[in-house]
Write a protein that binds this DNA or RNA. Structure first.
Ligand code: FES
Ligand code: FES
Lengths: 149, 149
DNA sequence: CGAATCGTAATAATTGAAGTTACATGAAAA
DNA sequence: TTTTCATGTAACTTCAATTATTACGATTCG
């Protein structure tokens, strides 16, 4: 399966929007992340549905952030994207009658549930502001390195 | 993406083999798990490569367990299958030059690494014997329920 | 010998994400 | 008001990865 990279995508887009005053068009975002404007609209549309971003049509239209960076967590974004399946590994049959399969599923599900819970807890503890700070840190370091060389 | 269900598959097969004296043919295993004998051979072949099972050709041939149930962990099976990707969610670009993407990747990778580490630790702590015990438990309960009704 | 069984390569089917095309809708600008 | 720019969406295609199938070769036991 192809891996779902929408979370990564929207984070990239949101960072760009955070560093920009006016709205950014789907076209501009698409170009910057080497994809298609329609894909951007589709994905960002899910964030608009929960109020994280705002979109405007026509001249001077585009996408803007509609929430405080400090209050938006990765978990919220994951949910806005429809809580896609986290794991690429799974059970052969989710609702088996057979006791053998039920035993296997039960043991595997336990492990996967724990790991997923941990992941979501981590997601809750990272905000867009944290991400922006991480970017600022890397940007500053990059400037230092460039100056030194 | 289609989810990789081979771990679930081999566990099912191994439980069957554990409850059986003689060898089981690929044909028999395939029929029981509603799949194709070639798929069984391909997958079980990976376990044979690391000595967990043994295969024999010809009349009276088939698959047998070649290790102590108490010593085989889910982690070993996961490794035998080639350590397939655990997550269905990932970064848009694994080796970006852009600092924005690097920041996003870094934050996401941290979270995913932790979750994967937890999952693998869990896998280390579950043996085939544990799984067989879980099956025995369910089987006993099923017999009780059937008797009562 | 000959039937049963695994080993393996090559190919097709399936599944789900991502990309494309096409056109409708709405808003600002000219 | 007309034109232009932008989003909104549906429909379809492409792409990547797993799983299934077909075909045939190699062994082993009866
Ligand atoms: S199919 Fe139920 S036990 Fe194998
Ligand atoms: S920042 Fe968007 S492409 Fe590098």
């Amino acid at each position: 399966m192809k891996r779902d990279s929408r979370l990564s995508s929207v984070l990239h887009a949101l960072l760009h929007m955070a560093e920009q005053d006016g709205p950014l068009t789907s076209e501009a975002l698409a170009q910057c992340m080497h994809t298609n404007p329609v894909v951007v609209r589709r994905t960002m549309g899910l964030l608009r549905d929960v109020g994280i971003v705002h979109s405007a049509k026509g001249h001077t239209g585009g996408w803007t952030i509609a929430a405080d960076l400090k209050t938006v967590t990765l978990r919220q974004l994951h949910e806005a994207l429809g809580e896609p399946a986290v794991f690429a590994i799974g059970n052969r049959n989710e609702t088996p009658e057979c006791l053998v399969e039920q035993s296997v599923n039960s043991v595997l599900d336990d492990a996967f549930s724990e790991a997923e819970a941990l992941l979501l807890r981590r997601f809750e503890n990272v905000t867009l502001a944290d991400l922006a700070a991480e970017f600022a840190r890397r940007h500053a370091q990059w400037r230092t390195e460039r100056t030194l060389s």
